[in-house]
């Protein structure tokens, strides 16, 4: 039975320790960037559950981030509601939208679903511009910067960093509990072989819609934590490029493990910045080349590649924990298929 083992606990403890210490040791602008890493990580986690575990490709999760971001922004801007109310409401609104889109998605598969969700992402900016009485139109809405609550000896930025990563932690935990056991197996069974899954009683409508809904909840929360540090939302904040960025992050990080979300979040945040350092004239080229290289040499993402390396190093197959769903993380082949 997949219980969290010592190795997993070690990795989680290291991750938590690093996240807790970072704001005290890195420059303040990096702390700021790391808030965006948290947002990307949360959104990519949703995609990993939806696409990696359930096999539904979404090129439209930027639209759910937009919904989340705008719920937070509109409530704060128009009604003066605090962010700690706005973000949960963003999660709910985005989750409901995700369930509805998920119902539509039931009728679509593979590339058709990708196209349909992509059109959702493309339409989002126009939609936001159109309902300008609510959204502020093209000009968008400015938000108040975050202040730490009285008595907390942190700057606003550090406070937001810890809140964002605490939320990311909670979201990881809830997702891990959700996809452990029966629920997660049903998602992955539908991905691997829908006919067989259905024949064993897995209701495709329930699980596929639920996966869509939950991934939208995560995207909605991520949208909130994308809007709050920027302290501004506009249609240009949530272009279709954002949706593609999320999918790139999921694939680069590793679409079949939760760790892929963390790595993917770091990569999509910093790769464009690093690309500019390498070649200021053509950052797009550097970015693209980096993408192609990862896809060529690490087809199962950075985390998949790392797992393979550690496997080689230890000469023992990785134990199935959170990675139990990894298609190629455990390169165990017991010889060719014999059909004698």
């Amino acid at each position: 039975m997949p219980r969290p083992n010592a190795g997993l606990l070690t990795r989680v403890a290291i991750a938590v320790a690093v996240i807790a210490i970072l704001p005290w040791v890195v420059p303040s602008f990096l702390v700021f960037d790391l808030i965006y890493v948290a947002a990307y990580t949360i959104a990519i986690l949703g995609l990993i559950i939806l696409t990696g575990m359930n096999g539904q490709i979404s090129l439209g999760h930027g639209a759910f981030m937009a919904l989340g971001g705008y719920v937070v922004a509109v409530l704060a801007h128009s009604a003066g509601w605090p962010y700690w109310i706005g973000v949960p409401l963003a999660a709910i609104a985005s989750g409901v939208a995700g369930l509805l889109i998920g119902l539509v998605a039931l009728r679509l598969a593979g590339v058709y679903l990708a196209l349909a969700t992509f059109s959702l992402a493309v339409a989002t900016p126009s939609f936001l511009k159109h309902y300008k009485s609510i959204t502020g139109g093209f000009d968008g809405m400015s938000l108040q910067p975050v202040q730490a609550p009285a008595g907390v000896p942190l700057g606003g930025q550090q406070w937001l960093y810890y809140v964002a990563w605490a939320v990311a932690g909670v979201v990881f935990l809830l997702s891990a509990l959700l996809v452990r056991g029966q629920f997660g197996r049903a998602l992955r069974a539908l991905r691997d072989n829908p006919i067989a899954a259905v024949s064993f009683g897995v209701n495709p409508y329930f699980y596929k819609t639920a996966a869509f809904g939950w991934s939208a909840v995560l995207a909605g929360i991520a949208g909130g934590f994308y809007a709050i540090p920027t302290a501004y939302v506009s249609p240009d904040t949530f272009t279709f490029a954002l949706s593609i960025t999320l999918l790139i992050g999921a694939v680069l990080g590793g679409i079949s493990t939760f760790w892929g979300a963390l790595v993917g979040g770091i990569v999509v945040e910093f790769l464009p910045l690093v690309a500019q350092q390498i070649n200021a004239a053509a950052p797009g080229v550097v970015y693209g080349v980096a993408l192609i290289l990862v896809m060529m040499f690490l087809p199962d993402g950075i985390v998949g590649g790392l797992l393979r390396l550690t496997y080689r190093f230890r000469r023992a197959p990785p134990q199935p924990a959170l990675e139990s769903s990894t298609p190629s993380a455990a390169p165990v082949t017991v010889g060719p298929q014999s059909r004698e």
Binding site: D33, T239, A241
Partner: peptide
């Protein structure tokens, strides 16, 4: 110091933080 913001507000905000603070 001239950076590529891709016409994206969040990207520009991050770049400006970096330019001002670092």
């Amino acid at each position: 110091i001239d950076k590529d913001d891709g016409y994206s507000p969040p990207q520009a905000v991050q770049l400006v933080h970096q330019m001002v603070e670092q």
